[in-house]
């Protein structure tokens, strides 16, 4: 699995940075430690404003889902959020079946995700 946490975007209308973590490949129990580390690092760099781009992920199991839930909680504890985007059809179905689509904020693309984060930020 490929993990890219280099990209930093600026939230629209603010100077605050958002970390964009791109994941690609099969996201299962073997990948969890690496992804967990990447999500924590990303959240630490941006006070919890994280976008996870799942565009390259073609499979996610329950350990992968739990890892994303953990990342979401980590960001929300910091008064921010972790937004998911670019869910491919097989992954979207898993989110719908497990009703995790109700727990996460899910955006269509990275731009929409950063806009959602900015809107959430202005509400706080």
């Amino acid at each position: 699995m490929q993990i890219n946490l280099q990209q930093l975007e600026t939230m629209p209308g603010t100077e605050q940075a958002v970390a964009v973590v791109g994941l690609a490949g099969r996201f299962d129990a073997h990948e969890v430690p690496h992804v967990r580390q990447a999500l924590t690092q990303a959240a630490d760099r941006t006070e919890g404003r994280v976008v996870v781009d799942l565009g390259g992920v073609n499979f996610i199991d329950s350990s992968g889902l739990a890892c994303l839930v953990q990342g979401m909680k980590y960001c929300r504890e910091r008064g921010a959020d972790q937004i998911l985007c670019n869910l491919q059809q097989p992954v979207r179905i898993i989110f719908e079946l497990t009703r995790l689509d109700r727990a996460f904020k899910i955006a269509g693309c990275v731009e929409e995700a950063t806009t959602t984060l900015a809107a959430r930020n202005s509400q706080n």
Partner: peptide
């Protein structure tokens, strides 16, 4: 959040029952 839960009523095709909340 549990899946798969499948109901198959007599005379009908088996279908998935969706979860009604997250895990």
């Amino acid at each position: 959040g549990h899946s798969p839960v499948i109901i198959c009523s007599s005379g009908s095709a088996a279908r998935l029952l969706e979860a009604d909340g997250p895990p």
